[in-house]
């Protein structure tokens, strides 16, 4: 790693009142600005919404950002969103990092705003430290075998197989029993239409 830190932008999300209701997001935004490498620290009402994403894109261009931290919700939720967002303006998606201020902070420490704010600051500091060391990555692509396997020949399996087959895909339908049909085939009539199941 070079001694010179990359130019980092931090985007703190209020998520309406989901985060701002428990975490002092302005205090976190001010704190983030003091962290090593951070050249822009911006608070947003909804970072994932179009204006929020646009603000990230604008800042990347205007401030020549090299790394982005989005402090909002779980990366399991919106990592693909924000990776796509930075990619739109030419930043490698692997140079974006998230801090989970919602699922892991505001929602679970709502009864203790002071502690929640302190934790939020730490989570942002951790993400900033990490993002400074991230490297651009090239994703690998592999061809896809144009066929599907459906395991289970009950009503769900049959329907999935039919829908895929009608789209023109080759489908293998594997059923444990000697016939497809599953439990549905054993039913006499089915509600709410009171018609035959087979």
């Amino acid at each position: 790693m070079t001694t010179e830190l990359p130019r980092i932008g931090v985007f703190i999300c209020d998520c309406g009142s989901n985060i701002a209701g428990a975490v002092d997001t302005q205090a976190v935004t001010d704190y983030a600005a003091t962290l090593p490498g951070v050249v822009a620290s911006i608070r947003n009402k909804y970072t994932c919404a179009e204006p929020g994403q646009q603000e990230i894109k604008n800042a990347i261009v205007a401030q020549k950002l090299e790394r982005v931290v989005v402090a909002s919700c779980s990366p399991r939720m919106h990592e693909p969103t924000f990776r796509g967002c930075v990619w739109d303006v030419g930043m490698n998606p692997y140079l974006m990092e998230m801090a989970n201020l919602r699922e892991h902070c505001s929602w679970v420490h709502g009864d203790n705003p002071k502690a929640a704010t302190a934790k939020a600051k730490d989570l942002v500091a951790s993400a900033v430290a990490r993002v400074a060391r991230l490297q651009p990555q090239d994703e690998m692509s592999f061809p896809v075998t144009k066929a599907a396997l459906v395991i289970g020949g009950g009503i769900a399996g049959i329907q999935a197989a039919m829908d895929l087959a009608d789209q023109g895909h080759k489908v293998y339908l594997v059923e444990k029993e000697p016939s497809i049909g599953g439990i549905m085939a054993q039913l006499d009539k089915t509600y709410p239409t009171m018609d035959c199941s087979i």
């Binding site: 690998m140 769900a156 329907q159 039919m162 895929l164 789209q167 895909h169 549905m184």
Partner: peptide, 30 residues
């Protein structure tokens, strides 16, 4: 029930279709 199973199966088929139609898959670089 049957209706929800059919609905969910349709959703799953659509998701599979999206993958198969794309023709390629990108794997996270980790």
């Amino acid at each position: 029930d049957v209706k929800d199973s059919v609905t969910q199966a349709g959703a799953a088929a659509a998701r599979v279709g999206a993958l198969l139609n794309a023709g390629k898959v990108t794997v996270e670089s980790i």
